[in-house]
Simulated assay, not measured.
Amino acid sequence: MENFTPFLSLAGGLILGISATLMLAGGRIAGISGILGGLIPPTLDFARWRILFILGLIGGAALFPVLGGDISFININPYNFSDDVHYAALIVAGLLVGAGTNIGAGCTSGHGVCGIGRLSVRSLVATMTFMVVAALVVFIIRMVTGS
């Protein structure tokens, strides 16, 4: 466990939990797929907070290394795929995730953070499904690539 940071992880979890609770108190779910999907087609009444939320996600990620966060452990191409295969895999994965969030009526943040927090059985089943499929995909990819 090279990158175990219990205090930073706890702080991040608390910030995420507080943010999700505040959004829920305002009648909104902090699910990224729902927030992004609500921008298509855009309506000004509902777009402003969604755009700010997405900009906050992007801004937070951009500020992380600027504020001293270490991203050296991130390996963009961990299986050493060629660039063509790597980009094709990313495109296919993105399309599958988009289809899955549509079929599952939400994403890991909506179901996993907000739904389970609301004691939703549907969200618990969805999150368990996400985790099992993720474990299977990692297993299959590692078996295929030998890494």
Rank of each mutant, 00 (worst) to 15 (best):
M1G: 14
F4M: 09
T5W: 10
T5C: 09
P6M: 12
L8N: 10
S9P: 04
S9F: 14
L10Y: 10
A11K: 15
G13M: 07
I15V: 15
G17Q: 04
G17D: 05
L22G: 09
L22C: 09
A25N: 13
A25M: 12
A25G: 06
R28W: 12
I29R: 14
A30G: 04
A30T: 06
L39V: 03
L44V: 08
L44H: 09
D45A: 11
F46I: 10
F46D: 13
A47N: 14
R48W: 10
W49L: 05
R50G: 08
R50C: 08
I51W: 09
F53Q: 08
I54K: 03
I54C: 01
L55P: 13
L57T: 08
G59S: 06
G59H: 10
G59Q: 09
A62L: 15
L63Q: 02
F64E: 00
P65D: 08
G68K: 02
G69W: 08
D70K: 05
S72W: 11
I74V: 12
N75Y: 05
I76V: 13
N77S: 14
N80E: 13
F81N: 12
D83E: 14
L90T: 13
V92F: 12
A93W: 05
G94V: 04
L96D: 13
L96W: 10
V97L: 15
V97I: 15
G100L: 06
G104L: 14
C107N: 07
C107L: 06
T108S: 01
T108E: 00
S109N: 00
V113N: 01
C114Y: 03
G115Q: 02
G115C: 05
I116F: 04
G117A: 02
G117C: 03
S120L: 00
S120N: 03
S123Q: 02
S123E: 01
S123L: 00
L124E: 07
V125P: 07
A126N: 02
A126D: 00
T127N: 01
T127W: 00
T127D: 03
M131N: 07
M131K: 04
V132Y: 00
V133M: 03
V133G: 01
V133L: 02
A134N: 05
A135G: 01
L136N: 05
V137G: 05
F139Y: 11
I140N: 03
I141V: 15
I141C: 07
I141F: 13
R142G: 01
R142Y: 08
M143I: 02
M143C: 01
G146D: 05
S147F: 05
